[in-house]
């Protein structure tokens, strides 16, 4: 088991290496390079020379890269050009909000998506399947930023039930307030993802329903609820775990848009701000952190999958 995990990590190394080169190289691809980024376009030659020396940009490129990589690996992602604070600290402040949103949205997505998929799959091509599949398509098709606006119009502007501009309140500090503030963003994100989950799970269930082992199970005289509950669900849920994991991983960075709609103070907002301020160390930092979390969740899902599916051997 540990060997399997190590092997999967080892497989990820090249990806991480190329990605780190890309992220590090970002600065050099920006017009004016790292120096221009700090000094703007009207810098004098002396200023440029001074900054170049200060930043060690006169050293060989490889040395600069390793310097940066070692820093990143030891948690030093540099300082924000804009606020001068350490990048890691800025990100650390925003991470809990993003995680809270991710968990809430996952719950919404599962609660809405799974029943829709099961009902749809059990009565394929019936009127109820058509309605539910239409709902899934709609959930997927409505852009989150428009859905967010509609939800604000309804719940904040019209009904005045929930706040429109979200703030982050930790669940442990004040559960009610936390739920109120995370409700609309979580609903927005959750509805969208429930569409993906429902569509995927329905397809997976429908194909399992046609499998030979289902006919075998019926031929033994098992009640239908056992055929579906034990035999089909077990097979259909295996790939589903992967999808749910991918979704959660996506929430960490992919909630950018939702966070923007609600002014929700997560990592996504931080990164948008960094882009508009041309705060490249912060942009780099956000990408590194999101990448690491994304890959870690993927790895966890892989390992979990291997653990649950008897057909995969660790060796």
């Amino acid at each position: 088991m540990i060997g399997y995990v190590l092997r999967r990590i080892a497989q990820l190394l090249p990806v991480l290496l190329i990605a780190s080169l890309g992220i590090w190289g970002m600065l050099y691809a920006v017009p004016g390079g790292p120096v221009g980024m700090l000094l703007g376009e009207n810098a004098t030659a002396e200023q440029i020379a001074a900054v170049t020396r200060d930043l060690g940009l006169d050293r060989p490129v490889l040395v600069q890269y390793f310097d940066w990589l070692v820093g990143a690996l030891t948690g030093d992602l540099g300082n924000s050009v804009y606020s001068q604070e350490p990048v890691l600290k800025l990100i650390g402040e925003r991470l809990p909000a993003t995680l809270q949103l991710a968990v809430a949205a996952t719950i919404v997505a599962l609660v809405l998506g799974i029943p829709v998929a099961i009902i749809s799959a059990l009565y394929p091509n019936s009127w109820i399947d058509r309605i539910l599949s239409g709902w899934s398509a709609l959930a997927l098709g409505v852009p989150t930023f428009w859905l967010g606006i509609l939800l604000i119009l309804l719940f904040a502007v019209q009904l005045r039930w929930l706040p429109s501009a979200s703030t982050y309140v930790a669940f442990w500090d004040n559960p009610v307030q936390a739920l109120r503030s995370v409700a609309l963003p979580a609903l927005t994100l959750g509805i969208y993802v429930s569409g993906i989950l429902a569509r995927f799970l329905r397809a997976s269930l429908v194909s399992e329903l046609r499998a030979d082992y289902v006919r075998t199970a019926r031929s033994k005289g098992l009640p239908e609820r056992q055929v579906v509950g034990t035999h089909i669900m077990r097979n259909a849920l295996l790939p589903f775990i992967t999808i749910v994991g991918l979704m959660m991983a996506n929430f960490i960075g992919g909630a950018v848009v939702t966070e923007a709609v609600f002014n929700y103070p997560g990592i996504g907002r931080l990164m948008i701000g960094a882009i508009s301020n041309r705060d490249y160390p912060l942009i780099q930092g956000c990408i590194v952190v999101i990448l690491v979390i994304y890959i870690a969740i993927n790895l966890a899902v892989d390992v979990l999958y291997a653990y649950i599916d008897p057909r995969i051997e660790y060796s």
């Binding site: 970002m26 960075g253 992919g254 882009i275 942009i283 999101i290 994304y294």
Partner: peptide, 15 residues
């Protein structure tokens, strides 16, 4: 694929 599409696109536009 190691980053969500929207983030990747944002990073590219930043550059």
């Amino acid at each position: 694929l190691a980053l969500p599409g929207i983030l990747f696109a944002m990073a590219m536009i930043a550059v």
